[in-house]
Simulated assay, not measured.
Amino acid sequence: MHHLTILSYIVWDPMKEIIRGIQPPVWYSVLFALGFIIGYQIMVYIFKKEGKDPLNVDTLTVYMVLATIVGARLGHLIFYEPERFFADPLMFFRTWEGGLASHGAVPMILLALFLYRNYFVTGSLLPPKLKFKKQKKTGQSYLWIVDRIVITVALAAVFIRMGNFVNSEIVGKPTDSDKGVVFGRIAEMYFEDGINGVDRAEASKGTSSEQLAPGIVPVDILVTFEGTSSTEQDIRAKLEREFKPMLTRYPVNEHYQEPLGTPLNYELVPNGRQWTATIHTYGIVRHPAQLYESATSLILFFMLLVLWFKYKEQTPEGILLGIFLIWQFGFRFFHETFKENQVAFEEGMTYNMGQLLSIPLVVLGLFVLIRSLVIGRKTE
């Protein structure tokens, strides 16, 4: 056993629902939508400041929302689950199974902005009777639009990664220290949904000062059983028969390390008509990789916004896009070193899929930035 001197880890166990018992909308969906709502307001402000028709932002937002969702979904399925996707293309619509990839959103957004810039759309989505008529937006070049939209995309990335953190998904690797985050919600969900008679489960920092090993720290799980006629003996049998094995099985054991070969360590007390058990176990401390990425995206957002405020139309077209691609996906390459791989085939790779897909986008950013600076100097 190792002794903790400073309990610097946190046990992260937010309610997945905004209102307990009501699943939709989850926090991720709210944060995802919030990124677009605030981005919409920013784009209206930009259009007004630069003398453009702010009504165009409504159309632009529709393009952006559709491109982001469709592109991110296709990107995940093509890059991470191609065999399943090509065998069952309808899984594209099963979004509740999860799976969005920002690398897929980028090319789809760039295409959508090209359509917005060059075509006027008429018709309806349902039933699909869309018609594209060639009509360029006056005073809005393609790079002018992209340079402004990346400001809001950087902000959306902040909210999306915060949503991933709330959902305890795209988690980081173990820190092998007591500094980091234990994603405690996974055990709560499996206890509440997978074991009959459980009313509620809440994970928190353990009261013990001992840890199994570096990065394996005490976690207490308070389990409240529904008011039933079960005896104390029945509850104790359930704890050993069902709770102990669940803590050692996938996917709970990705975040917990329950000692093997020993009885479950717990206290059981009556609480009115209910029973309450405090299970003493251990959690795996991980990097909050989602917050790392959210933080660098926030810095990028403010950096792009300041550049726009200071220079506006004086900025050579393409510079903000170039900075966005280099910063966002350069850091994405770096952040991937702290993340667990998303799919099994990445385990044998020197660089995972997220890193490989980031390289061409960084190269594209360098090309756009250098080209913009060279053209900018020629026009001075």
Rank of each mutant, 00 (worst) to 15 (best):
L268N: 01
N265P: 03
D234H: 05
W275K: 02
T262A: 08
Y256A: 03
E258R: 03
T276D: 12
L264S: 00
L268M: 00
L247E: 05
R236D: 09
E242Y: 14
A277M: 10
E254A: 10
P251D: 00
E242M: 13
R241P: 02
G261N: 02
G261M: 06
D234E: 13
A277F: 09
W275C: 03
K238T: 15
Q233G: 05
E240V: 03
L239P: 08
I235P: 05
E240G: 04
E232D: 07
P263F: 05
K244V: 05
E232C: 06
G272E: 08
V252Q: 01
T262W: 03
H255A: 13
T262N: 05
A277C: 04
E242A: 13
A277K: 12
E242V: 08
Q274P: 13
D234G: 04
E254D: 14
E267F: 10
V252D: 12
P263Y: 09
E267L: 10
P259M: 02
T276E: 15
W275A: 07
H255E: 15
Y250V: 14
Q233S: 14
K238L: 15
W275T: 12
P259S: 05
N271Y: 11
G272Q: 07
Y266Q: 11
T276I: 15
Q257N: 09
L239Y: 04
Y250L: 13
K244R: 12
T231D: 13
F243C: 08
L264W: 05
T276M: 15
T248F: 00
Q233H: 08
T248S: 09
R236H: 08
L247I: 06
Q233W: 06
A237V: 06
R236V: 05
L264E: 08
Q274C: 12
R241T: 10
A277T: 10
L260Y: 08
G261R: 02
T248Q: 11
H255P: 07
P270H: 04
Q233R: 05
N271C: 04
R249D: 13
V252A: 09
N265Q: 13
M246S: 09
P251M: 01
H255S: 15
P270I: 09
A277W: 11
T248C: 02
T276V: 15
A237F: 10
P251Y: 01
R249H: 13
D234C: 04
A277P: 10
T231S: 15
L260S: 13
F243W: 01
R241Y: 07
M246P: 07
N265F: 03
T262E: 14
P245M: 02
T231Y: 03
R273W: 06
A237H: 11
G261T: 00
L239S: 08
P263G: 01
L239W: 01
L268W: 04
V252M: 12
V252W: 02
T231V: 03
E242P: 07
L239C: 07
P259Y: 05
T262S: 10
L268S: 02
Y250M: 11
Q257C: 04
T231L: 05
E258I: 03
M246V: 09
N253H: 11
R241G: 06
Q257S: 10
P270T: 03
L260P: 03
P245T: 11
L264D: 08
A237W: 07
A237E: 12
E258Y: 02
L239D: 08
F243M: 14
W275V: 07
Y266M: 03
A237S: 14
L239I: 08
L264V: 04
R249L: 13
L247Q: 02
L247W: 01
R236N: 14
K244A: 12
K238Y: 09
E267D: 15
